Every structure is written in C-alpha cells, then in structure tokens.
Amino acid sequence: MLNNLNNVRKEKNVSLVDIADLLNVRYQTVADKINGKSSFKFTEALKIQEKFFPPNCQIKCNTFNLFLVIGLVNRSLAELPLPIDS
C-alpha cells in the first residue's frame, strides 16, 4: 500500500476521483494502484506530481519526489542509488 501518497493526497485534499480524472481511468483503478494491486506507470506518477504536488508546494517535496520514483513506479527501481537533496 502506498501510505505516503494516501497521506499526502488527504493532506492536500486531493480525492481519488481527482487522480482518476487526471489519468482518465476509473476510481477503482487508482484505488487498486494505491493499495498495491497494480503499479502506477512512470508517466502517471509524473502527471500526479505536476498537477497536485508541484515543486513549490508546502510538503516535503524531495521526499515525495523520491517516493514517486521508488514507490509508484516499478518496484525494481527501489534498488537504484538515487541522490537525495538535503
């Protein structure tokens, strides 16, 4: 389950329907992806970030950006060494 995404989207008042509308998929598809039944495509992760969590947002964007790459995209990316801005 993508708890990070769930927590951040609730904090920013972004509904699953909002994400589904952005990606042109069903609400249930987004719920399945957040619950780990399937994975977000990289392009979907980027769309979500650009629309709802832009770099100038008030959340910890560096952590969220890393989460997008590791958490939403193909799980094998988690093994790649990624730089983290401090």
Score class of each variant (00 low, 15 high):
residue 5 L to W: 10
residue 31 A to Q: 11
residue 14 V to N: 09
residue 80 L to P: 10
residue 9 R to Y: 01
residue 74 N to T: 12
residue 31 A to G: 13
residue 64 F to T: 00
residue 60 K to G: 08
residue 54 P to K: 05
residue 31 A to F: 12
residue 50 E to R: 09
residue 49 Q to V: 03
residue 20 A to N: 12
residue 53 F to S: 10
residue 59 I to W: 00
residue 37 K to M: 04
residue 28 Q to W: 05
residue 12 K to R: 11
residue 51 K to S: 03
residue 35 N to F: 06
residue 76 S to H: 04
residue 39 S to C: 09
residue 1 M to W: 01
residue 18 D to H: 14
residue 34 I to V: 14
residue 15 S to M: 10
residue 63 T to N: 14
residue 53 F to W: 01
residue 16 L to H: 03
residue 86 S to T: 10
residue 30 V to R: 07
residue 83 P to E: 02
residue 69 V to A: 13
residue 20 A to H: 07
residue 34 I to E: 11
residue 79 E to T: 13
residue 82 L to Y: 04
residue 36 G to K: 07
residue 38 S to F: 00
residue 42 F to G: 06
residue 70 I to T: 15
residue 86 S to P: 14
residue 14 V to P: 08
residue 45 A to T: 08
residue 61 C to E: 05
residue 25 V to S: 08
residue 42 F to C: 09
residue 42 F to A: 11
residue 58 Q to G: 04
residue 72 L to I: 09
residue 50 E to W: 01
residue 47 K to P: 02
residue 83 P to S: 12
residue 78 A to P: 01
residue 39 S to K: 05
residue 25 V to P: 08
residue 84 I to H: 00
residue 11 E to N: 14
residue 8 V to F: 10
residue 27 Y to I: 12
residue 70 I to A: 14
residue 28 Q to Y: 06
residue 28 Q to R: 10
residue 76 S to M: 02
residue 79 E to N: 12
residue 36 G to R: 04
residue 30 V to F: 02
residue 5 L to D: 06
residue 60 K to T: 10
residue 30 V to N: 06
residue 67 F to S: 00
residue 57 C to Q: 01
residue 41 K to L: 05
residue 2 L to K: 14
residue 18 D to F: 12
residue 25 V to R: 01
residue 64 F to A: 02
residue 83 P to N: 05
residue 33 K to V: 06
residue 18 D to Q: 15
residue 33 K to S: 10
residue 20 A to P: 12
residue 82 L to D: 03
residue 49 Q to S: 12
residue 83 P to G: 09
residue 22 L to Y: 02
residue 72 L to K: 05
residue 60 K to P: 04
residue 55 P to F: 05
residue 63 T to I: 13
residue 58 Q to Y: 01
residue 28 Q to M: 13
residue 63 T to W: 07
residue 41 K to T: 05
residue 75 R to K: 13
residue 46 L to G: 06
residue 35 N to S: 15
residue 69 V to Q: 14
residue 13 N to R: 11
residue 43 T to Q: 11
residue 42 F to Q: 11
residue 12 K to V: 12
residue 38 S to M: 03
residue 6 N to W: 01
residue 6 N to P: 02
residue 27 Y to V: 10
residue 21 D to Q: 08
residue 67 F to G: 01
residue 62 N to W: 01
residue 53 F to V: 14
residue 12 K to G: 11
residue 22 L to K: 04
residue 41 K to Q: 04
residue 46 L to I: 08
residue 38 S to Q: 05
residue 68 L to M: 14
residue 18 D to G: 15
residue 36 G to F: 00
residue 9 R to H: 02
residue 71 G to E: 01
residue 41 K to C: 04
residue 11 E to T: 15
residue 62 N to K: 07
residue 15 S to E: 07
residue 45 A to W: 05
residue 5 L to N: 10
residue 15 S to W: 02
residue 47 K to C: 05
